[in-house]
């Protein structure tokens, strides 16, 4: 192993730590400082603001739906991609990653073009059937699903590949049906990967901003999510509320990361 000399090591260490400190650690910690500058009152205050509470509830509802949908979709696709051969598999596995590099605004626009009640491709017919997608929660759930789509798949696929199909085949040879094999063998082996994926998707879903902004219409008290409230409050010069909600969001997302960081090493396969 290359041994770097002590000065070089210190230089590299300083660059790494300094960069991360200035860019991430310090700024993030300032949010906490701003929030609790005058004690807890500001932070507690957000829970008495009707619109903010509505936004938090909406955010939670949208995020949970998106995570559940992505969970079902993600696990299904992962198993299909790893365990089966079918034409078009390579293309599908590449397409799955698209949401990672598409701008949230473009995601919003794309959904708008198809599901907008007035001008979208499918929107008018869906609307005449009594459903509203855009400017309502279904659209927001779809936008959130879109941006968080690959996360669970990216956690589960490597684990499925790694464990191979020996255990599943052994179960089949011992008389287990497809369903029994999935529930008793496959699912327990990918359990932790699924949990990480869910936690990360939850963090991502709670924090989605651009795509939701486009499809929600941003109506205060009705389709405004927590991230949209941060923007609105900041621009209305209600900075303390903005910082308090931002702190709450930052706290939840960092908590998700810490949970994952703690879980992972113990259950590495």
């Amino acid at each position: 192993m290359v041994r770097v000399s002590t000065p070089v090591r210190w230089l590299l260490r300083t660059v790494a730590v300094g960069y991360v400190f200035l860019l991430v650690a310090w700024p993030v910690s300032l949010v906490a400082v701003q929030t609790f500058e005058d004690g807890f009152s500001n932070f507690v205050g957000i829970f008495s603001d009707e619109n903010t509470v509505a936004a938090l509830q909406l955010t939670l509802m949208v995020a949970l739906w998106a995570v559940v949908i992505n969970l079902i979709f993600g696990v299904t696709i992962s198993i299909l991609l790893v365990r089966y051969e079918f034409p078009g598999k390579r293309a599908l596995s590449a397409l799955i990653d698209i949401p990672l590099s598409v701008s949230p605004v473009v995601v919003g626009l794309a959904l708008l073009l198809v599901y907008s009640g007035r001008t979208g491709w499918f929107g008018p017919s869906i609307e005449s059937a009594g459903w509203q997608v855009i400017y309502d929660s279904p659209g927001m759930i779809m936008a959130t699903c879109f941006v968080a789509l690959p996360l669970i798949i990216r956690e589960v696929v490597p684990v499925l590949t790694e464990i191979g199909d020996d255990q599943e085949q052994a179960a089949r040879s011992l008389g287990a049906s497809g369903r029994q094999t999935f529930l008793r063998i496959t699912l327990p082996s990918i359990k932790w990967a699924v949990i990480y994926g869910v936690v990360l998707s939850l963090a991502r879903s709670l924090g989605e901003f651009g795509a939701v902004k486009v499809v929600s219409g941003n109506v205060t008290g009705r389709t405004q999510t927590a991230t949209l409230i941060v923007e609105a409050k900041y621009q209305n010069f209600e900075q303390t509320t903005a910082y308090s909600v931002a702190f709450l969001l930052a706290f939840v997302s960092i908590a998700c990361l810490v949970v994952v960081a703690f879980l992972r090493p113990q259950h590495e396969i």
Partner: peptide, 9 residues
């Protein structure tokens, strides 16, 4: 953190 933190935050 930058990955998990909401972008607006």
């Amino acid at each position: 953190v930058p990955f998990a933190l909401p972008t607006i935050v």
